[in-house]
Amino acid sequence: MDNRIAIRNLSAGYGAVRVLEDVSLDVASGQTAVLLGVNGNGKSTLIKCIMGMCKPSAGAIEAHIDGQPHDLLKLTTEEIVDLGIGLVPEGRRLFPKLTVEENLLLGAYRPAARVKRLANLDFVFETFPRLAERRRQPVALMSGGEQQMVALGRALMLEPKILIVDEPSVGLAPIFVARTIDVIDQLKRVKNLTVLMAEQNFNQAIRVADTGYVIVHGQIAFTGRSRDELNNSELIRRLYLGA
């Protein structure tokens, strides 16, 4: 099925501060698009615009879900979630006092997801056996890596067709960064997801990327259609590899 996002000439900001300037990018169906950029260049704002949490001043965001086009700028966040676009927010944003299971169930708040919550809970526990062992444990007592699994699991409770992950590596030990990125890649294959991932960790992100966009000062500075193209980019060398 065709599940993709097309962003055209998007500009957005907060008050007088311009954050995004004429950004266009595509997340192709069944692929992983990676949004690369260091702090403060507009990655999170772009994601907020897609999720309807931030109103852009110009441009268009269109999502195709099962081949059907939807104008995301006309929808509220909950309607966008209902379409099957799941977000794993930056910094995980879990409910620390609640247990693993309660956090996951909160991901199934939408009526459509609520009906299938038991099946989806099983799927999440199959995907992350570690969470099944700890289902009754408050999230606050878990490691950062495990918390990231819960955050991913919570988004999966919606049965998303498009998964948006904002900086999964934040606050994680290097070994967990690699594992988290692997899991996202695996999920993409098993569930046939379309993935948009914002990430600062270039080396890790690029391992699973089909397309890469480098965002600098709110503009797309480079688009890499393959891993090689990304690896060989002058700009990326300069920004990330210190060459």
Binding site: M51, M53, V81, D82, P89, Y109, R110
Partner: peptide, 25 residues
């Protein structure tokens, strides 16, 4: 009620609630 769980999620983390599709407003 589900309404109450939604409110609690807004209280604890409004952005996470929105990401889960809680109609916060």
């Amino acid at each position: 009620s589900t309404f109450g769980y939604g409110l609690a999620s807004i209280r604890d983390d409004e952005l996470a609630a929105e990401a889960a599709g809680v109609p916060t407003l």
